[in-house]
Design a protein around this nucleic acid. Structure first.
Length: 422
RNA sequence: GGAGGGGUGGCAGAGUGGUCGAUUGCGUCUGAUUCGAAAUCAGAUGUACCGCAAGGUACCGGGGGUUCGAAUCCCUUCCCCUCCGCCA
């Protein structure tokens, strides 16, 4: 949610920001709804004030007295009017809230102008992907033993498409990756949390999945719970409607969870194997920071994610997402893309974003400055990292001619061996 | 799943229709006292919205209702506790 005062007082600034994002929003309707709401509030509150004063008088009168009776009669109609005005207020507030939810966050000034993902800027590259080209290179799904190691067909039988089984050493490798990501995050100062995988509607709304992306989440309708599309949802909501001590900032947490995404309508040409799944594993990094620090903290967050790929020795590049491709709630966003040498494509494995106060406002997460009123924190999050595509890159980049995959040094402590083969 | 009890300010815990945004205790902050501290004493101490301001309004888990008036009565929903049942 955008600051209503910012919208009211710096409408042009907001309008320009939204235009940069290429979102179509009727800001005038939002402003009008705000106007209507405030008018209704004033009307209701003055009527209520009168009523309260009269009730105070009545409280002091003897119950059966004629003056009491007279006042009672008089207040009966006033009461009806107050009720009506109150209803108007709640209706106006509902409208205002609904249209308010359609207003996206404004992009930071450092976000490059652009329309689509083609306009994203490569701001860094690491490693030399050209060195990986070898005779053995092939997409991971074409590796001879792939179907044995990651069993999509059994997954289809048991659940449906996009819910594979990882078998034997492949399952062990998945576990090693989770362990590696979590240990690295812990070392970087993120406190680990093990979170609920189902959340209620209030939580999904606070982080912005509802109402916009309802169709992308699995919904357990009997109990009205949503299966999390990312750990961001439960982890961020940990502090929902709370006031954090300023001294506790920046607050850093990490969590491993499976993620569930319906991915309705997003299957295209390049979606095969591990590139897109309905259930996948991910470690998420989340920060709650002082507003003055959030853009500096974004750089640190990006660094924390990058280091994970470096230690795995996987070439990657960093994209600064352009204004037209950035998310609804985001102020600034970097994507990390790993090189998959078999597919010869860059695969997104992390998205690091600063939401400024947009998410905190929705979620009611504030901090108390030394002397003064509570203020909204800034929230950030980033994957650290998503598993399947990292796994794909390892399989493709480290594949030897004899079908053996060399396991990166950093994982061996948990994987327990140097190679993978079926 | 069944039966019962309960959700009040940072915490504890009063309040069963009006003068209650709410007694009191603890905690926290400020001041006095002290060389300093402890103890003691005095005062302060929720959040949001509307308003230039004075001030006003809302909030006693959430939503709805009764009433001139609701923390208090009714309905509904969520959560917690106790007991019984079932089960990993």
């Amino acid at each position: 949610m955008l600051d209503p005062k910012l919208l009211r007082e710096q409408t042009d600034f907001v309008r320009k920001g939204i235009a940069r994002k290429k979102f179509q929003v009727d800001l005038d309707a939002v402003l009008a709804a705000d106007e209507v709401r405030r008018h209704a509030v004033v009307e209701f509150e003055s009527a209520r004030a009168e009523q309260n004063a009269a009730n105070k008088e009545m409280a002091a009168m003897p119950k059966g007295s004629p003056e009491f009776q007279a006042k009672l009669l008089e207040m009966k109609s006033a009461s009806a009017r107050v009720k009506e005005l109150e209803k108007k207020v709640s209706e106006a507030e509902e409208v205002w809230k609904q249209v308010g939810l359609t207003v996206p966050n404004v992009p930071h000034e450092s976000v490059p102008e652009g329309r689509t993902e083609a306009d994203n800027k490569v701001v860094a590259t690491w490693g030399d992907e050209t060195k990986l080209v070898s005779a053995a290179a092939k997409p991971h799904w074409d590796i001879a033993w792939f179907a044995k190691a990651i069993d999509f067909e059994r997954g289809v039988k048991v659940t449906g498409a996009g819910f594979p089984f990882y078998v034997g050493d492949m399952a062990r490798l998945v576990r090693a990756l989770i362990q590696y990501f979590l240990e690295e995050a812990n070392a970087a100062g993120y406190t680990e949390v093990h979170a609920p995988l189902l959340v209620n509607a209030a939580s999904a709304t606070a982080t912005g999945q509802l109402p916009d992306k309802e169709g992308q989440m699995y919904h357990a309708q009997t109990d009205d719970f949503y299966m999390i599309p990312t750990a961001e949802v439960p982890v961020t909501n940990f502090f929902r409607d709370e006031i954090i001590d300023e001294g506790a900032l920046p607050l850093k947490r990490c969590g491993y969870t499976p993620c569930f995404r319906r991915e309705a309508g997003s299957w295209g040409a390049h979606v095969r194997g591990l590139n897109r799944l309905h259930q996948f594993d991910k470690v998420e990094l989340v920060k709650w920071v002082h507003p003055d620090q959030s853009f500096a903290e974004l750089e640190l967050l990006r660094g924390d994610a990058e280091r994970l790929l470096q230690k795995l020795n996987l070439p990657y590049r960093v994209l600064l997402i352009c204004s037209g491709d950035i998310g609804f709630s985001h102020s600034k966003q970097y994507d990390l893309e790993v090189w998959a040498g078999g597919q010869k494509r860059w695969l997104e494995v992390s998205s690091c974003s600063n939401f400024t106060d947009f998410q905190a406002r929705r979620a009611g997460i504030r901090f108390r400055p030394k002397d003064g009123k509570p203020e909204f924190v800034h929230t950030l999050n980033g994957s650290g990292l998503g598993l399947p595509r990292v796994l794909a890159a390892i399989l493709e980049n480290n594949l030897q001619p004899d079908g053996t995959v060399i396991i990166p040094e950093a994982l061996r402590r948990w994987y327990g061996k140097e190679t993978l083969k079926f």
